[in-house]
Design a binder for these strands. Structure first.
Length: 418
RNA sequence: GGGAGAGUGUCCCGAGCGGCAAAGGGGGCGGACUGUAAAUCCGCUGGCUAUGCCUUCGUAGGUUCGAGUCCUACCUCUCCCA
């Protein structure tokens, strides 16, 4: 299907990563003949990246796998300003220390996907704070600003839409694309970076960088964007009621991460296998051909493979096994998420409400626990709780020495006395 | 600078004669049905030491037995004029 000559673009195309490419033939030739250096920018507004960032990470992964050099650019500088695009709530001002902390967490994730310099690879982690923080406004205007045509900037969709809808567009926001364009040129100078990738919403910003590169450095740069990924039912990726699906194990356990993928909608399985696992396409085609309930097998593979990428093979297999015991055997898997309680509390009787709301956090409050009991949603050792005054005592301990608390049929936590 | 309007349940959108824990959606959660899916149907969707108490309608005051609702000031946003 793909007409590309380079392995890199072929893989991206076959797996569904490509939305738009600038000068595909020229980029293709470049990727075929030599080592291509490409980057993607990431905000560091949180201590971890979430599933929504996985797509760009995978693009960098394939870039490196096909013999090229990826740059993960941390937005240490741009985060200080705060990306204003999420307009509703004024964003928290992050201190430099927090940004630095977040960087550490995010860096850990990248090391799972990319081999960095000093660790046997050629991937680079850059931080735009290194050049943005020290910018001098006047110098910047003279060196960079003069290359930007406001007339042209106004013609970009992102800007045009705002103007047409007569929504406010702050000067700060207007400048964001300038800073991003500058990043691209800076990376070109420093690392001979020739390609910027990103989500489809980044197209305009990336193209700006290409133009700036040509004007400032006579550079020939490229853009490649990925489609916006939503689930079949139209929801954005990576959000659940419990919050974002983070990639760091201490924020979302491998088991929960596995569950997230296991619950993929039917219509998304094939697409997600291609995007979020590194299985061969032939294998994916076989899995995607499964029909009806058989598709569950494909979902398990998806869950395990996706989890293995982020948390390692061992954790992925463990999560799969825990799920198998819990859901397929109805047995008690000891590796379910566990919460410890003091033995004394159990001895004198622990109220179900407290156990669910305060100990496990399965529900958000006592009131919520009551509501769930009324709706038949809470279970103790697989028996539906009918009395909100029920107390948990050592009698409830299973032979394994734990008490299994469940919310609905999917969420389980073990209570363990210590 | 002048004029007009708006900010509601901390997920979002949105009604709200002075008696309001506050209509209705969306989303989410739970139940039924299934395949740990989707669709569909049903229930729930401020907190608590709970027949009551506490906190919520931009912020701070005021009027009133009682204020989301009226008054004053302030903040923020939008629109129109200059």
């Amino acid at each position: 299907m793909s007409a590309y000559k380079s392995e890199f673009l072929n893989i991206l195309a076959e797996r569904g990563f490509i939305h738009q490419v600038s000068e595909p033939e020229a980029l293709d030739a470049r990727a075929k003949d030599g080592t291509l250096t490409a980057y993607i920018g990431f905000d560091c507004t949180a201590a971890s990246l979430h599933v929504g960032s996985l797509l760009p990470i995978m693009m960098l992964y394939w870039l490196q796998q096909t013999g090229h050099r990826p740059i993960a650019l941390m937005g240490g500088g741009t985060t200080r300003v705060g990306d204003p695009s999420g307009k509703d709530e004024s964003r928290r001002i992050l201190t430099d220390e927090m940004i630095e902390q977040n960087l550490v967490g995010i860096r850990a994730i990248f090391s799972k996907f990319l081999k960095f310099e000093g660790a046997g690879g050629n991937a680079i982690m850059a931080n735009n704070a290194d050049w943005l923080n020290t910018l001098n406004y006047i110098d910047f205007l003279r060196d960079v600003g003069r290359h930007f045509s406001v007339n042209r900037m106004l013609s970009f969709d992102s800007v045009k839409m705002r103007l047409e809808r007569q929504q406010e567009l702050s000067f700060l926001e207007f400048n964001y694309m300038v800073l991003q364009a500058y990043d691209f040129v800076e990376l070109h100078k420093r690392y001979d970076c020739a390609l910027q990738m990103g989500g489809s919403d980044q197209w305009g910003n990336i193209v700006n960088g290409i133009d700036l590169g040509r004007r400032m450095a006579n550079a020939h740069l490229f853009a490649l964007t990925a489609p916006l990924i939503t689930t079949s039912s139209g929801a954005k990726m990576g959000k659940t009621a419990a919050g974002a699906v983070w990639l760091n194990a201490n924020m979302v356990s491998p088991y929960d991460y596995w569950q997230y993928w296991r619950n993929t909608e039917d219509g998304d399985v094939a697409r997600f296998l291609k995007l979020f696992t590194v299985l061969p396409l032939a294998e994916i085609a076989r899995l995607a051909a499964l029909q009806g309930a058989e598709l569950n097998e494909a979902k398990k593979v998806l869950a395990t493979e996706a989890t293995a990428l982020v948390h390692g093979r061992q954790a992925a297999d463990a999560a799969a096994e825990t799920a198998r015991k819990t859901f397929e055997e109805g047995a008690l898997a000891e590796s379910l998420p566990t919460v410890e309680v003091a033995r004394a509390e159990l001895d004198k009787g622990l109220g179900v409400l407290v156990a669910f709301a305060e100990k496990t956090g399965l529900v958000s409050s006592n009131g919520d626990a009551r509501r769930q009991i009324k709706a038949g949603g809470l279970k103790v050792n697989d028996a539906t709780v009918t009395d909100e005054k029920m107390t948990l005592t050592p009698k409830e301990l299973t032979p394994e020495g734990v008490i299994k608390l469940s919310l609905g049929r999917k969420k389980h936590v073990l209570l363990k006395p210590i």
